[in-house]
């Protein structure tokens, strides 16, 4: 009968941690950062359908770096956790802290008990009524949770980008300033020194917009994202109304659909207008045309 070699627990944990860290560092980075009217998520992702950033609940979203199948599984579990909690209690009883704790338990248990740790890093963010009430949690492969102030960087070159963010990020940035900063940081390459300029089509960007009444999560794309990233464009924040195009309203592109003959939308003008909605403000809690 063969005896397994004795491996000291320190060594065992270190091997697992090294394994997870190495594989996470191979992925593209993801940045979550607070801005004056919400929380922004920015990732380099050429895919339009395999998301690294997703909605979890009304005021909560999720960003992940690492192995897709593992964090997708965690995302679905998070949506189920949040919907179950909201259904059995009330929508206001679903909190990012609760979800972060649940994730920490899973990651921690897998790290200590399974043959292989999860090769993922997660951020769970909840937008509050004021910037002070915003919450951003960072979860790592071993189940440790950190309550971060302002921003979280995950994935490859996280340390380099983090120190850059430390210098440049400050509270109260506008959305366009925050996105410009994040995109510049994502393009930073410490390995060969040459910075890359990331174009909007290689980016996955989403926000939790404080001013939206219930579901705060919106992906950003199209002209709106280009306008927010352009240095000479006056657009500084997302418009308060969703795209008028019928269908899912999870993405803001700033494009206007032709006015409908039934319920004309007041601001819908030229159907081929290339001008994005340049209304940066959020006048009160306007539910985007929905009557009380």
């Amino acid at each position: 009968m063969s005896m397994p070699f004795y491996v000291p627990p320190e060594q065992q944990m270190k091997d697992r941690a090294d394994y997870a860290r190495r594989n996470i560092a191979r992925g593209r980075p993801v940045i979550v950062l607070a801005y004056d009217n919400g929380i922004a998520f920015v990732a380099e992702n050429a895919s339009r359908s395999l998301h690294k950033i997703s909605e979890i609940y009304d005021r909560m979203a999720f960003g992940a770096a690492g192995r897709y199948n593992e964090f997708e599984n965690l995302r679905v579990a998070g949506v189920r956790y949040a919907d179950l909690r909201g259904y059995s209690y009330d929508r206001s009883d679903v909190t990012a802290r609760g979800l972060a704790n649940a994730y920490a338990q899973i990651l921690g248990n897998v790290f200590t008990q399974d043959s292989k740790p999860m090769e993922v890093e997660l951020a769970v963010a909840e937008v509050g009524a004021t910037p002070e009430q915003d919450q951003i949690y960072r979860l790592t492969y071993d189940g440790s949770v950190a309550d971060e102030q302002g921003f979280v960087v995950m994935g490859g070159q996280a340390d380099t980008i983090s120190s850059g963010m430390q210098e440049r990020w400050r509270p109260g940035l506008t959305l366009s300033a925050a996105l410009t900063l994040a995109v510049e940081m994502l393009g930073r390459d410490s390995t060969n020194g040459a910075d890359r300029a990331l174009t909007p089509d290689r980016l996955e960007v989403a926000v939790l917009d404080r001013a939206r009444p219930r579901r705060a999560f919106r992906r950003l794309g199209g002209q709106l994202l280009e306008a927010l990233l352009a240095p000479d464009d006056p657009t500084t924040d997302v418009p308060s109304s969703d795209d008028s195009r019928p269908g899912a309203h999870d993405t803001l592109t700033g494009e206007q659909a032709p006015p409908s003959p039934v319920n004309p939308v007041p601001q819908a003008g030229d159907p081929v207008s290339t001008e994005p909605d340049q209304e940066p403000g959020h006048p009160g809690n306007d539910a985007g045309g929905a009557g009380a």
Partner: peptide, 18 residues
């Protein structure tokens, strides 16, 4: 080591059913 990586986690298996 269990066959199911989530069996020992705090959330039950139904949360991870694909």
């Amino acid at each position: 080591m269990t066959a199911d990586p989530f069996r020992e986690g705090r959330l039950p298996e139904a949360f991870f059913a694909p």
